[in-house]
């Protein structure tokens, strides 16, 4: 008991320390590195909270994908130091901000402690009814069976975000290739990693997406790992992002949400309603939709990392 308390306390303190470092770090690169450490520690916290799916998602998205984006950004966002220091709020402002933010945090902590006991929640119900959709993993059952609308909207939002990032491109670059071009790494650790990891990663990612319906895993996590593998190969100069005008890219992006939406609408005719799975062939249908979703999540995350088109196709 004491050991687990100590461990939790340690993880919590480290998380906070990393967060504070992220804010206080002297350089932007140091801050981003601090943030990556924060993300890894947070993954640990999620594991301690018994949320393996979330830990995986945090590691894949919160650390890996966000980390790549931030590191790419920090490299490109050079200069402008004078304007930044000119825009820094005064000492009084900072003190006031600290005081007020601290007060909000305090109120929040007290409110969390005041939450009712025993905790209301849907844990038991979700667990008991996870089988209804033919999914053994309760998180997957919630995501696919009960809160399917969230997931549908989220997948649409992802497509939307990709388009939003693309649409920031200059007019003449429309239809071109997103992101900076990386020189091909012939040797060095990056080249080695980029050659060794992706084959493994692709297998792992696919497995995690596949196994998600029964055990910890899922499309988001699996898709994120696939995207990370592609990103590694991209940064190492082995692959190039596809042109955004390419039809296959767009189809890959919309495959998941479109399949989900169509299956949902089919449910209106064949099952209990929109986003209900027809009991007769729920399992194959879910697998089909999940496969499409994995593809779309992977494509969307990778393209979000790559950014708006910057070169002609």
């Amino acid at each position: 008991m004491t050991a687990s308390w100590l461990l939790d306390g340690l993880v919590a303190a480290l998380v906070l320390g990393a967060a504070a470092w992220t804010l206080a770090a002297p350089t932007a690169v140091a801050a981003v590195v601090g943030f990556l450490g924060f993300g890894l520690l947070l993954t640990l916290a999620w594991l301690r909270l018994g949320a393996a799916e979330v830990a995986m998602a945090e590691a894949a998205i919160g650390v890996a994908a966000t980390g790549v984006i931030l590191l790419l950004a920090v490299v490109r966002l050079r200069g402008g130091a004078e304007t930044v220091s000119a825009a820094m709020p005064g000492r009084g402002m900072v003190a006031a901000a600290g005081l007020l933010a601290g007060a909000v945090g305090l109120a929040l902590a007290l409110a969390v402690l005041a939450l009712p006991d025993p905790a209301p929640g849907l844990a038991a119900e979700a667990l008991a009814r996870r089988g209804e959709a033919g999914l053994g993993n309760p998180v997957a059952a919630v995501l696919t069976g009960y809160r399917g609308l969230d997931r549908l909207l989220e997948s649409v939002a992802l497509v939307l975000a990709v388009l939003a990032v693309w649409s920031m491109a200059p007019d003449r670059r429309w239809g071109g290739i997103p992101g900076p071009r990386f020189p091909r790494q012939e040797d060095g650790p990056l080249a080695l990693l980029a050659r060794l990891l992706p084959p493994v990663g692709i297998v792992v990612g696919t497995y995690i997406a596949w196994v998600g319906s029964e055990a910890p895993g899922g499309t988001v996590q699996g898709g994120a790992i696939l995207a990370a593998m592609w990103g590694l190969a991209w940064v190492a100069g082995i692959v190039q992002p596809p042109a955004i005008a390419s039809r296959p890219v767009r189809l890959a992006l919309v495959a998941g949400p479109a399949a989900f939406l169509l299956a949902g609408l089919a449910g209106m005719a064949l099952a209990e309603g929109f986003l209900a799975w027809p009991p007769a062939f729920a399992r194959p249908l879910i697998l089909l939709v999940e496969a499409a979703m994995t593809l779309s999540v992977a494509a969307a995350l990778a393209l979000l990392v790559a950014g708006p088109p910057e070169r002609a196709a």
Partner: peptide, 17 residues
């Protein structure tokens, strides 16, 4: 200005509560 608006937001949370 940005910091002023941010502070207003924090004040507003506390005042509403």
């Amino acid at each position: 200005a940005w910091p002023a608006a941010g502070l207003s937001l924090l004040v507003l949370i506390l005042a509403l509560f």
